[in-house]
Amino acid sequence: MVDINKLSSYHLDVLGEIGNIGAGNAATALSGLLNKKIDMKVPAIKIVGFNELMEYVGGPDQEIVSVCLRIQGEAPGSMFFVLKPEEANALAEKLLGVPVKDVSSDEMALSAVSEVGNILSGSYLSALSDFTAINMQPTVPTLLSDMAAAILMQGLVEISQESDYAIIIDTSIEENNQQDDTVKGHFLLLPELESFEKIFQSLGVQE
């Protein structure tokens, strides 16, 4: 089993760079889709235990909007792109160009946010797969709006019997470098135990 304590700042830097490559690819795809410049950045990346994970997104009772999917291939797991409702509304407004008061009750807004989550997830997994030479493919995503515990628990239950950690990739989305109007979300990667070991062994962390 990979010892989380053996992970160095180098390994986190590598994961951060992979995240930035994925974010860059996603930004390019979104810019072409929307015909305007979109920037995505990964300001921070962390590896936390499941108890910390729930608190990181605001606690189990925090309402969130999340794009959820499973990872198939050689390193299966679960993945979530998590936004607070106000961030989801702001993102939908950027995408649609019209005010959005409640993304959870706006079918077009939900579709737009789901598409961003789909593009971001696919771009990040592609970058991670290319860098580690591990085949990973996303399933069709599902978008949910509920309390964090209700949404994340399914992914946690699927792997919590085998693994103890999750990778959190902070993500910021800007339009035309407008830093005062940045949408911030969290990209959560929950690999199964063997998947976690494969990913980090490919980065030079041995058992």
Rank of each mutant, 00 (worst) to 15 (best):
S145Y: 08
G185P: 08
V183H: 01
F50C: 10
E207R: 11
G185Y: 04
D170I: 06
D13N: 13
L34W: 13
L30D: 00
E107F: 14
Q178D: 12
D146T: 00
V48I: 15
A26V: 09
A27D: 03
V183I: 13
M108L: 11
R70I: 00
G122A: 10
L128D: 04
L83D: 01
M79E: 11
L12M: 14
A92I: 08
A27Y: 03
E197R: 10
T132N: 04
P76N: 04
G24M: 12
S160H: 12
A29K: 11
S121T: 13
D61N: 09
G155K: 08
A88Y: 10
S78T: 09
L144T: 07
L189G: 01
T171K: 09
D170T: 06
T132W: 08
E63F: 13
L190I: 14
F200P: 02
L15F: 09
I71W: 10
Y10A: 08
D130F: 06
G19T: 06
G58W: 06
A23Y: 04
Q161E: 12
H186R: 15
M40I: 14
S172P: 00
L95D: 00
I119Q: 03
I38C: 00
T182N: 00
L189T: 02
S31N: 04
Q62R: 09
G58M: 05
S78N: 15
S163G: 03
L143M: 08
L34Y: 13
Y56N: 06
E174K: 10
L120C: 06
Q201W: 01
D61T: 12
A148M: 04
I168C: 13
A88N: 06
Q137P: 00
L110P: 00
Q62N: 02
I134G: 02
L95P: 00
E207Q: 09
L30I: 02
P141I: 02
E55K: 12
L190P: 01
T28D: 07
P138W: 10
A29E: 09
I21D: 02
S9G: 06
Y165D: 01
I151H: 03
S195V: 01
L190E: 02
L144Q: 08
K37C: 02
I18T: 01
F80R: 12
L69F: 15
A166F: 10
V205L: 01
E63T: 07
A88G: 11
H186D: 08
K46P: 02
G32Y: 13
E174R: 13
E17Y: 02
G73M: 09
V103I: 12
Q161L: 10
G22D: 04
A27H: 04
G73F: 08
N135R: 14
I4Y: 08
V157D: 10
A150R: 07
L203H: 01
Q154P: 01
I159N: 02
A44T: 12
V113N: 05
G77F: 12
A150H: 11
D180S: 05
P43A: 03
E55F: 10
F187L: 15
S129I: 05
M54E: 02
V157G: 03
S126A: 07
P138V: 05
A109N: 03
G73H: 08
D181P: 00
M1S: 09
V205I: 04
G204Y: 04
I47A: 07
K41E: 12
V100K: 05
D102P: 03
L128R: 05
P141Y: 08
E175S: 14
L120T: 07
I18K: 03
I18M: 15
A149P: 02
M147C: 06
D3E: 06
Q178K: 12
N135V: 11
L91E: 04
